[in-house]
Design a binder for these strands. Structure first.
Lengths: 136, 136
DNA sequence: TTCGTGGATGTGAATGATTCTTATTGACAC
DNA sequence: GTGTCAATAAGAATCATTCACATCCACGAA
């Protein structure tokens, strides 16, 4: 078991890294983090394993923000706030996503809805402040 | 005015093209359409003008589907259904997006929400059918 | 032990969407 | 006509992501 662990060390590390942050990171960010503990890790491995976990449903993609894909290790349905200025993504865990919406979406679309994403875009608190201080 | 029209012909054509469809097209699709009426139009022009209108708020980006950005000429807030199989994007105009959500998002996030996107992903009717017929 | 197998990885090249650069054009004011 | 300024075409450049391929490692069979 210890030995097996070793073989999957990097795959596991990708998942741990994602679960250990609430920054909804990009592949590049994960790569930079893991580089410290695993100096020989490659970007390809990070992409490969993110795709693997996404496929498994173990993690979730938030779509792209400013051209790069962002991931979330928290698969519980929750709402996101995306800052259009700095690209930060915040969780709004307090906001409820009505349960029955998916069924409504399925029936309206004639297909089968598997997941639902609710997100808001705008300026985060920090960027609001910066804008009001510098006048844009 | 006629003359001025001519100068902006392609910019306007990009907007018209987007407004004349409900397929939520990509830049490439718009380019292919316009190529018929404007054989010398360039992809760069399409990208440039999509970015221009997006900046103005005249059109809206849906984010990327299967790696390519998709646009919507319909800026009225409405719900989308995105097929993960064929990439089709359907409007669910019948579904309501509660008005007060944006304010809640602003207060929870400490920032200022400017827009809200609610979308469902899954299999559209056609793809459901295909899957059940072919057994995947 | 020694092989063989199969999954995980590193490397670097390839891909593909998007953006940038440069030269050109058209509309308008003088 | 000349100058200016925005819009454009063409193609090069960029950048995130994927792919191809050789290698490595754990495990199991001989």
């Amino acid at each position: 078991m210890e030995l097996r662990q070793k073989h999957f060390r990097k795959r596991d590390a990708v998942l741990e890294c994602l679960r250990g942050t609430d920054t909804h990171p990009s592949a590049e960010w994960v790569y930079a983090q893991l580089k410290r503990s695993y100096p020989d890790i490659s970007l390809g491995t990070v992409y490969r394993n993110l795709a693997f976990f996404k496929e498994q449903g173990t993690i979730v993609s938030l779509g792209t923000v400013k051209g790069v894909e962002r991931f979330d290790g928290n698969t519980a349905p929750h709402v996101h706030f995306i800052c259009t200025e700095c690209g930060r993504v915040l969780d709004l865990m307090q906001m409820k996503v009505p349960e029955e919406l998916s069924e409504a979406a399925s029936s309206y679309s004639g297909g089968h809805a598997e997941s639902c994403q609710l997100s808001f875009t705008g300026l985060c608190g920090d960027c609001c402040k910066t804008v009001s201080e510098t006048g844009e």
